[in-house]
Design a protein around this nucleic acid. Structure first.
Length: 267
DNA sequence: ATCTATTCCTGGCTGC
DNA sequence: TGCAGCCAGGAATAGA
C-alpha cells in the first residue's frame, strides 16, 4: 500500500537538506504543470513568486515556510509531495521553480499537496499548535489540561500540537504504552510525562535517521530515510509485538488506521 | 468543544 | 502483461 506521509521528521529533513541550496537564491522562473498544486491560480501565484529571493527556510508543523524578500511561500507536502533539488521533471512533477537557473521540483503523485504565497504568515499556519520539539514536559502538561476526548484524535489535531501525523502518533503511543482511545482527562502527571518523553524521543530518533520511509519518501537531495525500520506498530497489524509477541491490532479511530499492541497498550 | 462524514487524488492491492 | 473496485490519508469543511 502506498503511503509516504511526510510528517514532522520528514519535513524537518527536507528543510535541512534544502536550505543550504536555496537560501540567497532568486526565483528566476516559475512553471506550474498542475493547476491544483497552485491552488487553482497558477498564473497569479507565478507572478507573486517570480523575482523573489529566498531569505530563509523553516518548518512550522508540517509546513515548509520559505521566507522571501517579499511575502512567504508555504508548501504542504500532504501525502505524497516531494521537493527535489536539481532533479529532472517527471510524470508527477506539478511545479518547477527555477532558482538562479537551478530547478526546484515539486513532485506529488496524488496532488493533495499545495504551494501558496501570502504577504504575511497565513492564518492556517499561524493558528497551529506548539511544536512538540520546542515544548517542555510542563508546557505539555499545561496544554493537555482540560482537554476532552481520546489521545489519538487529539495528537492528530494540528491546532493542539503541530507536526504529528498518523504514523508517528501510533509510534508515540506505543512508546508511551498508552492505548489510542485513552481519554486525555485520565492522564495523570506520570503518564502525561511519559507521553511527552515518548513524543520527543520518537521524533528525535526519526530525524536522526533522516526521516521515515514507508514507501518512497525522499529528502530534497533524493535520499530515502530509513526510520521505517524502526516502526514498531504502524503497518504491522497481525505481526508480533516487538516487546511481548502479542499480535499488533488495527482499529479505525477518527477515520484513520490505528495500530497498537493490545497487551502493552492497555486502555 | 468534540464528534462524524465528506471531499480532494492516484496507484497498489484484492478478488474474480 | 485483466480489470473493476477498494483502500490509504492531511486538512478543510459542513453539520450534529
Amino acid at each position: 500500500m502506498y503511503s509516504s506521509m511526510p510528517e514532522l521528521p520528514e519535513v524537518e529533513t527536507v528543510v535541512r537538506t534544502l536550505s543550504p541550496h536555496v537560501v540567497g537564491r532568486r526565483i528566476t522562473a516559475v512553471d506550474f504543470h498542475s493547476v491544483l498544486a497552485a491552488g487553482g491560480k497558477p498564473d497569479l501565484l507565478a507572478g507573486q513568486l517570480l523575482g523573489r529571493s529566498v531569505v530563509s527556510v523553516r518548518r512550522i508543523g508540517k509546513f515548509l515556510v520559505f521566507d522571501l524578500d517579499r511575502g512567504i511561500m508555504a508548501v504542504h507536502l500532504r501525502m505524497t509531495g516531494k521537493l527535489l533539488w536539481n532533479a529532472s521533471p517527471g510524470q508527477h512533477t506539478r511545479a518547477v521553480l527555477s532558482l538562479d537557473g537551478i530547478p526546484l521540483l515539486f513532485d506529488d503523485i496524488r496532488q493533495f499537496g499545495r504551494l501558496t504565497w501570502s504577504e504575511q504568515l497565513p492564518g492556517n499556519i499561524a493558528k497551529l499548535g506548539p511544536d512538540p520539539l520546542n515544548l517542555s514536559a510542563h508546557q505539555f502538561a499545561v496544554l493537555l489540561h482540560g482537554r476532552r476526548g481520546s489521545l489519538k484524535p487529539l495528537l492528530l489535531k494540528q491546532e493542539f500540537l503541530s507536526g504529528l501525523g498518523n504514523i508517528y502518533v501510533d509510534e508515540c503511543l506505543f512508546r508511551a504504552q498508552l492505548h489510542p482511545l485513552t481519554q486525555a482527562t485520565r492522564l495523570g502527571p506520570l503518564r502525561a510525562a511519559r507521553l511527552h518523553t515518548a513524543i520527543v524521543d520518537v521524533l528525535t530518533e526519526a530525524i536522526n535517521a533522516g526521516g521515515s520511509s514507508v514507501s518512497d519518501y525522499v529528502d530534497a537531495d533524493g535520499h530515502t530515510g530509513d526510520f521505517q525500520r524502526f516502526h514498531r506498530v504502524y503497518g504491522r497489524q497481525g505481526e508480533p509485538c516487538v516487546e511481548c509477541g502479542t499480535p499488533i491490532a488495527r482499529i479505525v479511530v477518527a477515520q484513520r488506521g490505528t495500530h497498537f499492541c493490545p497487551r502493552c497498550q492497555k486502555r
